[in-house]
């Protein structure tokens, strides 16, 4: 196959685009740090853990969310784009049958709500939900 000048240009620009994507640092470094603190570097899988949040929240001051984690002893919730990502840590006692809880949280901007669950056998699960926020809710 003969390469024309046009072909080369196209290939070059695609390649640069891919490089730019790959080099972009992870957005959620603060959240990742917090998650690493909880898991101690252990592998985080997916499972029955579910985060339910509205797709669009008009008011970031009070966004209803729900976590459901069958078989979990603890669930930590984080909001990627908040000044401090930690939202809440929920521990389930022996009298809790469903291991689910709902509450209302503040979100500063459009972002992912991430939940990390620690299961009874010590393994970890992760789930997230993206929320588009129209008006941010962290003051300032």
């Amino acid at each position: 196959m003969k390469l024309t000048r046009r072909d080369l240009l196209v290939m070059g620009s695609v390649g640069m685009g891919l490089t730019a994507l790959g080099v972009t640092p992870a957005m959620a470094s603060l959240t990742d740090d917090e998650i690493a603190k909880i898991t101690g570097g252990a592998e985080v899988g997916a499972g029955d853990l579910v985060v339910t949040a509205p797709e669009i929240a008009e008011n970031g001051n009070t966004v209803p969310i729900e976590v459901s984690a069958p078989g979990a002893v603890m669930v930590a919730i984080f909001a990627d784009g908040n000044p401090t990502p930690a939202v809440a840590t929920v521990k389930f006692g022996p009298l809790n049958p469903t291991h689910a809880a709902s509450t209302r949280i503040r979100l500063a901007k459009t972002q992912d709500v991430v939940a990390i669950a620690q299961m009874e056998d010590g393994s970890f699960q992760k789930a997230k939900a993206n929320v588009k926020v129209t008006i941010g809710g962290c003051g300032g």
Partner: peptide, 16 residues
């Protein structure tokens, strides 16, 4: 006997 134990951070809305 414990049912639930929640640690709250500032990201929890007014009137938790």
């Amino acid at each position: 006997q414990n049912v639930i134990d929640v640690t709250l951070e500032p990201a929890i809305s007014t009137n938790p």
